[in-house]
Design a protein around this nucleic acid. Structure first.
Lengths: 212, 212
DNA sequence: GTCTATAGTCGGATAGAC
DNA sequence: GTCTATCCGACTATAGAC
């Protein structure tokens, strides 16, 4: 019933998340999709192009899935918490794994790079949007570079995803700490007026010094 | 002159950082080392075992190189700054790339996992040691889980390393933001006595609530 | 569009001479 | 320990029948 191209893309997604990039051959993907191996080349030309399409599609569907949750975030602490939940559920589904695998492969295969970069940009744009919204009223707004911070956050998610693959316990400890950090950041961000004035005064001193 | 085993390990390190895991075949490594391909199997049994040894050696030498610099760190802000410098110089040398490549490969190749995990642990131990030392006197020491935070930091380094491979500009923005964050964290950590009292009071409320 | 068949390449691994 | 030679499997990609 499903179109062959779709079946191949779905097969690529499944193979990438379960077997990794090393196992994502035209043969393995075609088998997973239940179609003939030659159709990979008929429909996509090369394996890389199929993987690129799969990367794009997998990422788009996941980002769309989380858009509502990101939109509901109203503090950095909440953002960290959503990130923690995202990490847990994506580990189970293997969707972030696809991006991580292709990102690693793209280091030395420039044919994969554009698709991977685009996939990452989808996540980054979402994080940037949330960060821009919730840091606008922060006492430290002037010190926060939203685009750069969004890229750090996205990189951390990829790194944690990969770390969890070799050390589930270590990654669990890291995620638990994310939760603690969420609390800490909220506390700092929600400092009372007295502390906030002291913080602002210190920041002014630092910025003046930096301007010199 | 150099021992053949050493030449192979060096060759593996060079190939891994320049061609990635996908290009790290016994033939490619042997060529880079200037020795016969069959010697890979004579000395190491399988390619994976050679890669594991290469991972261990490359990581150990880099961690040793940075130990002195880590030891000189006396604040979280300084730690972030050392991390930023480390990121820049390791990108040039390609040494962190080895760990990132093998980490991605280890997701679906459990024979690589132990060596990669051990390599990561070397970095994590170093970061833990610094974090434990410099957070001891922090006003938020009770809220910081050092082992978990060390794992987050290590994961971020890996993630940034990979991100830089597909988006040098994006990674540069992220690194610049790390520098800003270093300042921000120092400021928060170095709050004056008034703000510090306010922060402690808030933390107590949060912890009391969490205990309930 | 889909299949079979196959060319051509590369990689892991081993046997056996030296 | 090191080399040559080689087996065998897996891979990308294409040609050509249907």
């Amino acid at each position: 019933m499903a179109d062959t191209k779709e079946r191949l893309v779905d097969g690529a997604i499944r193979v990438l998340s379960s077997e990794g990039l090393a196992g994502a051959s035209a043969r393995a993907i075609a088998t997973a999709a239940g179609v003939n191996q030659a159709l990979v080349f008929y429909h996509f030309g090369t394996v890389d192009q199929l993987l690129s399409v799969a990367c794009r599609q997998a990422t788009e569907s996941r980002v769309a899935l989380y858009r509502a949750r990101f939109a509901a975030v109203s503090s950095i602490g909440e953002l960290l918490d959503v990130g923690r939940q995202l990490q847990v559920s994506e580990r189970a589904s293997g969707n972030l794994q696809i991006l991580a695998q292709l990102l690693a492969g793209a280091q030395t295969d420039e044919r994969l790079a554009p698709a991977v970069s685009a996939g990452l940009d989808l996540w980054i744009a979402e994080i940037e949007s949330v960060l821009g919204r919730i840091t606008a009223t922060s006492p430290v707004a002037d010190l926060i570079d939203v685009p750069g911070l969004a890229r750090i956050v996205a990189s951390t998610f990829i790194g944690l995803q990969l770390y969890g693959g070799v050390s589930p316990d270590g990654a669990a400890a890291a995620l638990a700490t994310l939760e603690r950090l969420a609390v800490l950041v909220e506390v700092v961000d929600g400092l009372g007026p007295v502390a906030r004035r002291a913080l602002r005064a210190t920041l002014r001193r630092v910025d003046t010094k930096a301007a010199r």
